[in-house]
């Protein structure tokens, strides 16, 4: 299958290893990615907190550009995913706003392409059975908790992705890779998001709680799908409670036996190499 690819700012910077592992896994699973032409930032929390129209117009320009190719758009960053889904929701439900935004962007919006995150594409288009059949190194001994966070799921009528209080797709994917996902009640709790820079002390409390709860669930690592969750867990958690954190695509890549696994993990702050090398996976 072929999809358009919107990396967003994080995947070119703090989440480089997410970008690299998404690309490697997509190539291995036969998902062709075409990077969206001349994309701009989605505006993130900064735009929707301060200026509603700006928060719709910025993603709208990228959405309209994607419609040219008539390809669905893969958006790995949960924060960008949420902004795109929310923009579509507003444009589909508010005609006046749609007209105004079309005037600003200078082109019509047709709402003809779907915004998809890679968990959805791998689980629903490629299929977990196919994924399982492709595993070369089962992740035996890896006990992740799947952490979905806020922005893939909420609000549910906008995101349209998995059960919003008890999502399971990432857990199922981890099981398909041979890992032993642990159940916990914090799958969809918030990591503090962009308060990480402006109010770090609050975010430290939030991620320490997540790490502590993951340990209580007997997990030895955390699997994430969001650069913001990764940055907060990986850089903000206190020394006594840390667990290694992995982008789920890194774990898929390692299980498929792809090259580059160790290089992705070296970019993390908390040591994430020892666990998987101790299990003989990289």
């Amino acid at each position: 299958m072929k999809v358009a690819y919107y990396p967003g700012c994080s995947l070119h910077a703090t989440a480089k290893e997410y970008d690299q592992s998404v690309k490697a896994v997509s190539a291995a699973l036969g998902i062709e990615l075409k990077e969206l032409d001349d994309w701009a930032c989605c505006g993130a929390t900064a735009a929707h907190s301060t200026n509603f129209k700006l928060s719709v117009a910025l993603p709208a320009r990228d959405l309209i550009s994607a419609e040219k190719d008539a390809l669905d758009v893969m958006v790995p960053c949960a924060a960008c995913f949420n902004r795109f889904k929310s923009t579509q929701h507003h444009l589909d439900h508010d005609d006046e706003l749609k007209k105004e935004v079309e005037k600003i962007v200078g082109k019509p919006y047709t709402g003809s392409v779907a915004i998809r995150n890679p968990i959805d594409i791998i689980a629903n288009d490629i299929g977990l059975d196919t994924l399982k059949s492709r595993v070369k190194k089962p992740l035996k001994g890896l006990k992740p908790v799947a952490y979905y966070g806020c922005l893939l799921l909420r609000p549910p009528e906008v995101c349209n992705f998995d059960d919003y209080e008890n999502p399971v797709l990432l857990d199922k994917m981890m099981a398909a890779l041979g890992a032993e996902p642990k159940q916990w009640s914090y799958k969809t709790d918030c990591c503090g998001g962009s308060l990480s820079i402006s109010r770090a002390e609050i975010v430290i409390k939030m991620v320490d709680k997540l790490m502590t709860m993951a340990r209580e669930a007997d997990a030895n690592c955390i699997a994430v799908a969001c650069p913001l969750c990764m940055a907060n867990l990986d850089f903000r958690a206190s020394a006594g409670v840390r667990l290694p954190v992995y982008y789920f695509t890194e774990l898929v890549g390692i299980a498929l036996g792809l090259q580059g696994g160790r290089d992705w993990l070296k970019l993390h702050n908390i040591d994430s190499v020892s666990l998987v090398s101790g299990l003989g996976l990289v």
Partner: peptide
């Protein structure tokens, strides 16, 4: 909460200058 708003403003200025976030 001045620091929170300062971060939003710095973020938006980066988009205005480069189209993307230049960390």
């Amino acid at each position: 909460q001045k620091k929170i708003l300062a971060l939003h403003n710095a973020f938006l200025t980066s988009i205005k200058m480069f189209g993307r976030i230049n960390e």
